[in-house]
């Protein structure tokens, strides 16, 4: 299991578009991908659950990847978040 913290730098927070891109990216990996925020766990492969997390601009989230391709998954997702989540 690997994990890392990230700061959300999209002004609108985790809204539909970034959540949808993030979930599609997470779904490409076999590993379980979980976003930890505000003391709760959210399945990152689900755009709906990611949106229910109401992650705001400037928040810090922890991404946890667990599975055979966990390193690749974390690297790819990390790069996606740091690059502004496609916005």
């Amino acid at each position: 299991m690997v994990s890392k913290e990230f700061t959300i730098n999209d002004e609108l927070g985790m809204h539909m578009r970034p959540a949808s891109l993030l979930s599609q990216m997470a779904a490409k990996y076999q590993s379980n991908v979980t976003v930890k925020y505000n003391g709760k766990d959210f399945n990152a492969k689900s755009v709906m659950l990611l949106m229910t997390a109401l992650i705001k601009y400037g928040s810090v989230i922890e991404v946890v990847c667990d599975g055979p391709d966990e390193e690749e998954a974390l690297a790819a997702i990390g790069e996606f978040i740091d690059s502004g989540m496609g916005d």
């Binding site: 539909m16 949808s20 979930s23 399945n43 689900s46 755009v47």
Partner: peptide, 15 residues
């Protein structure tokens, strides 16, 4: 994109 979002939503594992 609003409409594409609908397709993404229904295809979601939690939907």
């Amino acid at each position: 994109e609003i409409l594409l979002g609908h397709a993404v939503m229904i295809s979601d594992p939690s939907m």
